[in-house]
Simulated assay, not measured.
Amino acid sequence: MPPDPPSSLPDISATVKILQFGDSMFPVGGFAFSGGLEMAVQLGVVRDRSELAEFVATVAHLAAGCDGVALLVGHRAARAGDLAGIRRADEAVHLRKLSEESRTMTVRMGRKLAEAAGHIVGDSLLDKRFREAAEDRVPVTYPVALGVLFAILGLSEVDAFAVHQYGVATMVLGAAVRLIRVDHLDTQSILYAVNATAADEYRRVAGVGLDDMATFGPVLDVLAAAHVRAHVRMFMN
């Protein structure tokens, strides 16, 4: 006879929600973006596995200090039922996207996530924010939408932050296998190393507010500006 299940089971439903909405194949369009890698490769900033690892680590670090902060604020606002607080987080993200392509990415992915959540989860605070955004000049942004969605699903802000950081890294690494000479084992090794930094990144930004959101990455800003004018592009940023 099979053994009896343990008296206290882990929350499997929470785990599968994290897996579903944190899946790199979830239909928000992340595959269409490279996180700046395409132009970095074209201009010789990233040429091999070692430089790719440094690039991904840098992108993830910068994302934590900007989008990651807004995600946490959005999650906390959703837990409090504060629609205005969610809107302020969206505005903070949108205003800090210096390049046209970075704004396009966060708005497009935010809209896709909100639309998908409305279809899957139903009416929610995220759906209300999405309808509100259609009437004002502050669009839904991806990190805030992700934080709000995880709050709605009853998942912690730590889970939301982890999924966000994982998604940033997998976006760049997914593009890498199409841009430079690396294989899937290389990218998984890099992903494993970047994942190991997520807890420290969370501790670094957990107490940071919207006014202190910052992302100082001038090389990435220059790459984004150059990519807008590129004649041949595989990715949207």
Rank of each mutant, 00 (worst) to 15 (best):
P2Y: 07
P6C: 02
S8K: 14
L9F: 05
L9C: 01
D11K: 10
S13W: 11
A14N: 12
T15E: 13
V16H: 12
K17I: 01
K17V: 02
F21C: 07
S24P: 14
P27E: 04
F31H: 11
F33I: 00
F33G: 00
G35E: 08
G35Y: 09
G36T: 08
G36H: 09
L37A: 05
E38H: 03
M39E: 15
A40D: 02
D48K: 05
S50C: 02
E54C: 04
F55W: 09
V56C: 01
V56T: 11
A57K: 15
V59D: 11
A60V: 15
L62I: 06
A70P: 09
V73N: 00
H75R: 01
G81F: 01
D82T: 09
L83M: 04
A84F: 00
R88M: 07
D90E: 11
D90L: 00
D90S: 11
H94R: 04
S99K: 06
S99C: 09
E101G: 11
T104N: 10
M105S: 01
R108L: 09
R108S: 03
K112L: 14
A114F: 13
E115R: 14
G118Y: 02
H119A: 14
H119V: 08
L125F: 07
A133I: 03
R137C: 04
R137Y: 03
V144D: 04
L146M: 14
L146C: 10
G147W: 07
G147N: 06
V148C: 12
F150E: 03
F150L: 09
A151E: 00
D159L: 02
D159I: 02
A160Y: 09
H164V: 01
Y166V: 00
A169F: 07
V172S: 01
L173E: 04
G174E: 07
A176H: 07
R181C: 00
D186H: 10
S189D: 13
A193F: 01
V194T: 09
A196N: 11
T197I: 01
A198T: 15
G207H: 08
V208F: 04
F216C: 02
P218L: 12
V219A: 09
V219S: 02
L220Y: 13
L220C: 01
V222W: 13
A225V: 08
A226W: 10
H227R: 05
V228Q: 13
N237P: 04
